[in-house]
Design a protein around this nucleic acid. Structure first.
Lengths: 114, 114
DNA sequence: ATTTGTGGTTACCTATTGGTTACCAGTATT
DNA sequence: AATACTGGTAACCAATAGGTAACCACAAAT
C-alpha cells in the first residue's frame, strides 16, 4: 500500500498507510507474541504465495514492525518476531480480531459468499 | 478487496475481508456518528476520486455497514450514516485512530516519506 | 437562457497486486 | 551421488484497483 495523502492529518489514514493492505494485519496477528519461521507462516496462510509473503515480510521489516533473525546454526533457519513498534499494534489487532469473531462479521461473510 | 480464503477461520482475516482496503476504514471513520453528504466526504478526503468514493460507498452499503438516505426535498441530497453493523466497528476504528496518533506511527510515516 | 452545484456514471488507461513456474545455495539424508 | 528441505529470488503474466477526464440529469440561481 502506498502512502496516502493525508492533508487533514487523519490518524486512521496514517495508520492504514502503515499496516493496511491485504496481508499485513493478518501476518502481524499470526506472529503475535511468538516467533515464526517462513515455512510456518506459509502454512498458517495457505492462500498467500511465497513471493508475496516474502515481499510483505520485507516491507514489514523496513517499516520496523517486525524483526528477522537468521540462525546460522545448521540448516537455514529464519524466525520473524514483532518489534516493539509491532507489539504496540497488538491492541489494535486484538480489537480487529474481536470484531472478526462477532456475529455481525460472520453474518456479513455469509452474505458475501452468496 | 476480494474475499480472502480463510481455512483456519482466522478472525483478522475475516475482518479484513470485510472492511479492509485502501479507503473503507477511512470512510467509516469519517462518517462516524455523523451523517455526511457525498460532497462533504469528498472534501474530507481530497485524495479520493469521486469514482472511487462512489464505488466504495456502494460496496459499504452492500456490506450493510452504511446506509444511504436520499432526501427528495429539493436539490439532490444524499446522506450517508453508519448502520448498526457499521457502528459496531467504532471501537475498532477508535483503536486504529489511537494508534495512528501514537508517536510510533508518526515516526514510521516520517521515515516512509524519506 | 445560461450557469452553478449535487451526486453521481462512463470510458479509458495505468499502476499495483498477485500468481505461476522455475530456479538457487547450503545442509542433511539416503 | 542423488534427493529433499529451507528460505527464499527472478522472470513473466493476469487480474484488479485506482486515476483522469468528460459527461449527465435535475434543480436553483442569475
Amino acid at each position: 500500500m502506498r502512502y496516502i495523502e493525508n492533508p487533514y492529518d487523519c490518524p486512521v489514514t496514517r495508520a492504514m498507510s502503515i499496516f493496511g493492505g491485504k496481508w499485513k494485519p493478518i501476518i502481524l496477528n499470526c506472529i503475535g507474541e511468538s516467533s515464526l519461521r517462513f515455512g510456518k507462516l506459509n502454512q498458517l496462510m495457505p492462500a498467500i504465495s511465497n513471493k508475496v509473503l516474502s515481499n510483505e515480510l520485507k516491507e514489514l521489516e523496513t517499516l520496523g514492525l517486525i524483526e528477522r533473525k537468521e540462525f546460522k546454526e545448521s540448516l537455514q533457519r529464519v524466525e520473524y518476531t514483532l518489534s516493539d513498534s509491532g507489539k504496540s499494534l497488538m491492541p489494535v489487532l486484538h480489537e480487529i480480531a474481536s470484531w472478526g469473531n462477532s456475529n455481525e462479521a460472520k453474518k456479513i461473510v455469509k452474505e458475501m459468499a452468496k
